[in-house]
Simulated scan of single mutants.
Amino acid sequence: MNIIKEIPSKETYIVRQPVLRNGKPIESCIFEGDDLDTTHHFGLFDQDKLIGIISLFSQTNPIFAEKNQAQIRGMAVLESHQKKGFGDALVKHCENYCIENGIDLIWFNARTAAVGFYQKLNYKIIGAPFDIKDVGEHYLMSKKL
């Protein structure tokens, strides 16, 4: 049975590193703001094994007019568990959390390879692609809740 629950930031590293920072030191898995009281990390467990993660930051992007915004960062599912609906479940969990907490817009920087995944969940691309140093090409994406 799969369960999504809130986890400490340090627990995200075992999924962040192989999926998002492969070949890079564990320190590269630490994101600014990870340990703020307003940041929430959710882990998806399959029979007690952490297989997917997503982090939700209380971060406003001035491009958007909405006052109550949240940024998704570090969404990752272990490669052996990808394409099985776990990523969808993590994103929907964040959306429900945001709705329950009065957030009206989610935004994030999506890797080019993940754009199609997010578009299926009704996220829209905003603007042109841009490069994040040492990580690669990304697109700004958002969804009003």
Rank of each mutant, 00 (worst) to 15 (best):
H81F: 14
I72N: 02
C98H: 03
H138V: 00
M1P: 12
K10W: 12
C94A: 15
D37H: 11
Y13C: 02
Q82D: 12
S80M: 10
L44S: 00
D46A: 11
K143E: 13
I99Q: 14
K49H: 15
E100G: 08
D48C: 07
D37C: 08
I132D: 02
N96D: 15
L121P: 10
L44F: 01
Y97W: 15
D88T: 13
D35N: 15
K144R: 14
D37R: 09
R21N: 07
G33T: 08
I99P: 04
T112R: 09
K92D: 10
N61Q: 13
T12M: 06
P129A: 00
K92C: 06
E27Q: 11
I103L: 10
K5F: 05
D88R: 11
L105T: 00
K24E: 15
K144L: 04
K5N: 05
S80K: 11
F31E: 09
M141G: 00
Q17R: 15
L140W: 03
G102M: 04
E66P: 05
G85K: 07
V77R: 01
K10Y: 14
L56S: 03
I51M: 02
G23W: 08
P25W: 09
I54M: 01
V15H: 01
E32A: 14
I72E: 00
E137V: 11
F57N: 01
S58D: 15
K24L: 14
I3K: 15
G43M: 03
S80T: 12
S9F: 10
I14T: 13
L44N: 03
G136H: 04
I63F: 15
V135D: 12
S80C: 08
F31L: 12
I99L: 11
K120E: 15
E6A: 12
S28M: 11
S9P: 06
Q59R: 12
L105K: 11
G33R: 06
D34H: 09
K67T: 13
I99D: 07
L44H: 02
T12E: 02
Q71S: 10
Y139I: 02
D34V: 09
G136A: 08
G87F: 01
M75L: 14
L90K: 00
K144V: 13
M75S: 05
K5T: 09
A113F: 10
Y13S: 08
L145K: 03
D88L: 09
C29N: 01
M75Q: 03
V77Y: 03
D104P: 05
H40S: 10
K10T: 09
L36V: 07
I99Y: 10
D48N: 15
D134K: 05
E79P: 08
I63M: 12
D37P: 06
H81S: 11
Y13G: 05
S55V: 01
T12D: 01
S142K: 10
R111V: 07
K124N: 13
E27S: 13
K144W: 07
R21P: 04
I125Q: 05
I51D: 01
N96Q: 12
